[in-house]
Simulated assay, not measured.
Amino acid sequence: MPISPNQGSTGGGTVVTITGTNLSGATAVHFGSKLGTITANTATSITVTSPSGTGTVPVTVTTPGGTSNPVSFFYVGAPFKSSITPVSGVTAGGNTVTINGTGLSTATAVHFGTAAATPTVVNDSQLTVTVPAGTAAGPVGVSVTTAGGTNNGLSYTYVDVPTITSVAPASGPTSGGTAVTITGTNLTTTQSVTFAGAPAPFSVISDTTLSAVTPPGTAGAANVVVTTNAGSVTDTGGFTYTAGPGI
C-alpha cells in the first residue's frame, strides 16, 4: 500500500495519496493515533489530509472489510534559515545565492518576494538557488518551502546597475592624490573604483555620490570604472592625467 508523499509538515495539512486495493468505502485513515481527513476515495486510492504529528507514524486505512497493514509517514519540522550569501544582486536576477540553516533537505521552492525559484539541495543545512528577476530595485523577503512547511525571515536586496554622470574635477596630476567626486545612480553597493585599471580608495556618500582619490597614472585620458553588486559601469576617458612641467 504505497503512500505519496511519505513525509509532511509537523503542523499537518499535507495532502497524501494512498494507493492499493479494496479501498472503497474507507471510514478512517489513521496517522498514528490521529485521524486524517479523507477528501476522495475509490477502490484503488484514497486522498487524505494529514493531521499534525511528530516523528515517524504508522498509517492505516479502515474499510468495512477491516484495517490495512501499516505504512510509514514521516513528520518533518519547518525549516530554519540562518543566513543568505550574497545578500544583494542585480534586479535582472540570474546570480546564485547560498542559504544556510537546518531542515533544508526537502526544500522544493525558494521565494524572493512573490517570484519563485527551484533550489538545489546541497545537504540538510545548505542549499543554492538562482535568483529570479525582481520587479524593482529594493529589498524583498526570502522564504524556503520544504515538506515541513515554509519559513521566512531573510531579506535579499535587488539593485540596479550603476551609472556615472560626472567625475569632478575631470583632471589631475600623474602623481595621483586628486580628490574627486563621482556622481551617478545606484552607487550604494559600490565595491571598487578604478582609474585606468588602478584601484582607488573611495567612500560612498550616498546612492548618487562617491568620493575617491586618484592613484598615480600616466599622462592622458583614463577610464573610470565603478563596480557595485549589480555590475560595473565605465566612464570612458572620464579622468585625464596631466604631466607636470619639466626643465
Rank of each mutant, 00 (worst) to 15 (best):
G93F: 01
G94Q: 01
G94T: 06
G94A: 00
N95Q: 15
N95C: 10
T96I: 15
V97E: 08
T98C: 08
T98P: 09
T98N: 05
T98F: 07
I99P: 03
I99F: 04
I99Q: 01
N100C: 11
N100Q: 15
G101Y: 10
G101R: 06
T102K: 04
G103K: 00
G103Q: 00
G103M: 01
G103S: 03
L104G: 00
L104F: 01
L104T: 00
S105W: 12
T106K: 07
A107Y: 12
T108P: 11
T108A: 13
T108S: 15
T108V: 14
T108Q: 14
A109D: 14
A109H: 15
A109C: 14
A109E: 13
H111E: 13
F112T: 07
F112E: 02
F112Q: 02
G113V: 09
G113Y: 10
T114G: 11
T114L: 12
T114I: 14
A115F: 08
A117R: 05
A117M: 07
A117G: 04
P119V: 06
T120N: 11
T120K: 09
V121T: 04
V121P: 04
N123I: 08
N123T: 08
N123M: 04
D124T: 11
S125F: 11
S125R: 12
S125G: 13
S125P: 07
Q126G: 03
Q126P: 08
V129N: 02
V129F: 08
V129S: 05
T130G: 08
V131F: 04
V131N: 07
V131D: 06
P132H: 05
P132S: 03
